[in-house]
């Protein structure tokens, strides 16, 4: 007989139990997803930007910008929002990927001297006001990504002088060169730990770019990420406990955060746009990055309580 459907008490209890279980699972699922931190937009011009770095006093940001067809190093005064080119005079040749010295008095950066249809990369140093640019590492091969050590006595950079990208360090006069990595793969994107004892970097030695760390003399290389995706641009938190980095493991570039030993990687930005080039404020309360979430390439930051 086909008629109205009647639930027996036991059946009803069973359905209630299943519903409760489902609800509990859903609540757990929501609770276990990391909350998305509040994000603040800092620039709105949309022009291409990359390579962010806070000044040691936290008042300025250095970054690479393509503006009116020219790639150069720019600064952003955080109190006023004013952006201006760093170098005086303008070298009229591409320059990029700059880094403040720990005392905030100098900047090191990549200068691209154009020769015909090719460029020759070298490392230059200038005063923090952009004046007095001088050669620090002349072009021997393709020299890039200079990063000052926290004690200000040395800097690390990437060079192809051995036939592939390797990380070197030198003193602040560009002397006493030390080769830190030695692998046929590409080693790049160096980032010092705040105590200066270690460097995090990207390497393709395991088949694709992962984040690795090593001692400042190149010893004791450790693999921090192990994922078949691009993991790049590591940035060590000022307290040394965490490393932010960019990865496309979720399909698009996101800023991830992991413990300094590589454990507990989690997606910090969780946005469909491209998020890249993480940079910590000196007090560790802000993590700035470049995002395309409004179509262009603008600076945003996350504020931690």
């Amino acid at each position: 007989m086909i008629g109205p459907f009647h639930l027996r008490p036991t059946g009803l209890m069973g359905i209630v139990a299943v519903l409760l279980l489902l609800m509990t699972t859903m609540v757990r699922g929501v609770a276990s997803a990391p909350p998305i931190p509040a994000t603040k937009r800092i620039t709105s011009d949309g022009g291409f930007k990359q390579h962010l770095h806070f000044s040691p006093d936290g008042k300025r940001l250095l970054f690479t910008r393509i503006h009116k067809g020219k790639m150069g190093v720019w600064t952003l005064e955080l109190a006023t929002g004013m952006m201006k080119p760093l170098l005086i005079p303008d070298p009229n040749t591409p320059h990029f990927d700059a880094h403040f010295s720990p005392d905030g008095k100098s900047v090191i950066f990549v200068l691209d001297i154009l020769h015909g249809t090719d460029g020759k990369l070298q490392i230059n140093r200038c005063d923090a006001d952009g004046k007095n640019s001088t050669v620090l590492i002349p072009h021997k091969a393709f020299e890039e990504s200079p990063r000052w050590s926290p004690d200000g006595k040395r800097f690390a950079w990437v060079t192809t002088r051995d036939g592939n990208q390797e990380i070197y360090s030198a003193n602040i006069k560009g002397q006493e060169l030390r080769r830190l990595t030695n692998d046929n793969a590409m080693d790049n994107n160096p980032a010092w730990s705040p105590d200066g004892k270690k460097l995090a970097f990207s390497s393709s030695r395991y088949g694709n770019f992962d984040i690795l760390s090593m001692n400042a003399d190149g010893s004791e290389i450790q693999r921090l990420t192990n994922h078949p995706s691009v993991d790049m641009w590591p940035a060590w938190s000022p307290d040394g406990k965490q490393i932010a980095f960019t990865t496309n493991r979720d399909g698009n570039y996101e800023i991830y955060l992991m413990n300094a030993d590589g454990s507990n990687p989690r997606n910090l930005t969780q946005h469909a746009a491209s998020e890249n080039y993480a940079a910590w404020s000196p007090d560790g309360r802000r993590l700035a990055f470049i995002s395309t979430r409004h179509g262009g390439h603008d600076i945003y930051w996350i504020e931690f309580p």
Partner: peptide, 9 residues
Amino acid sequence: EAEEDSGDG
């Protein structure tokens, strides 16, 4: 060239 161009490179 990637860097020389007046635009996207």
